[in-house]
Design a protein around this nucleic acid. Sequence first.
DNA 1: CACCACTAACTATGTCGATAGGTAGTTTTG
DNA 2: CAAAACTACCTATCGACATAGTTAGTGGTG
Lengths: 193, 193
Amino acid sequence: MSLRNALFALLVVEPMTGYDLHKQFESSVGHVWHAPDSQIYPELKRMESEGLLEGEEIPWGPRGRKRQYHVTEAGKAAFRNWMNTPLEYARTRDPAHLKAAYLEWADPDAAREQLRAHIEHHTGLLGQWREKVREIEDGSSAMLNRRLANTPKADREKTSAYKIYTYEGLMSQAEAEIAWARRGLKLIDRLNG
Amino acid sequence: MSLRNALFALLVVEPMTGYDLHKQFESSVGHVWHAPDSQIYPELKRMESEGLLEGEEIPWGPRGRKRQYHVTEAGKAAFRNWMNTPLEYARTRDPAHLKAAYLEWADPDAAREQLRAHIEHHTGLLGQWREKVREIEDGSSAMLNRRLANTPKADREKTSAYKIYTYEGLMSQAEAEIAWARRGLKLIDRLNG
DNA sequence: CACCACTAACTATGTCGATAGGTAGTTTTG
DNA sequence: CAAAACTACCTATCGACATAGTTAGTGGTG
């Protein structure tokens, strides 16, 4: 269900092809919901068959064709409805914490290496997200600018604010992971003193 | 792969039946890796067919039978190997943050309600984990005690420490989510004057 | 004009996981 | 002692996801 709504979130801004969407899933929305193109194309077809999207064949070069989708009123209603419906929380499935719980089975050096990798991974994400917030704040985010151009004036502040708010949340998560892994490195030292 | 190793983590302590394991997945290991019994039984068969576990039919009451699995040397090696191998990080799939990014599409009241639910959800988890840490610290955790009894003296401290460390990590995550949702409530108030 | 990267849109296969059942025996309790 | 709850072990189906590969046209570069 989330994939569908991630697609809506992009398509309410402007019509796009499956390929356009697939590219967005490598940047903007892809930071909170990943999906490969092999999932996107069939989902678009399903959404069209349910009347939530409408596709239009448009020419591309002399012989090429592509299919551009736009959201129908029913689609917008479905998206708004999802936005207003509380989430159901899935139970945890967290490989990093699963491993941490049984770290006595790992070699201390391998354990250290993995915690360092954990720190590196989340430090990388943190940097990416800081950059994203910067882009939003100085108005250099192309996708957000197109979105703002399609948003009534009164809602523009909200639109930007919620994007920043989301990245700030991801940043808090990353910071928590980094701090936890650092404590882990100290713990390993203490236990293998 | 994580399910398999979560099963190893439990079975290295003592032999268990699929049903025993299924119950553990509702408490201990289930806090970091959830799995329904419909996944556990087939996985046990697969692991046995690969020589990582050995199953033994044991009687249960006058006519009943149950199948108890224990880890083979090959199984222990596979588990240790997994513990020493760095994780591959999967890309993000986070419905709560996906929604947050497009919160301008929700009614402010529905948005508030969802953030409050987010706080409640993570507050509940936080309480559970605090309780778990307390149990470990005062030695009233049955599963951990069985695990410690099967652990060489020198490793007992590690075993407890890593369990606590894991729950502390989960607690940091929950605290970050709660703080973030609280900031979100303030943001909604600010944006909707 | 050959080449190559890119755009565009799939398909195919396999595993993972959610959900919902079913069957049979055992133990507890009212 | 019958009913209810629990133990034990499955199966079946469906959607979600990962991974890999295919086909075809476009547009720019050397």
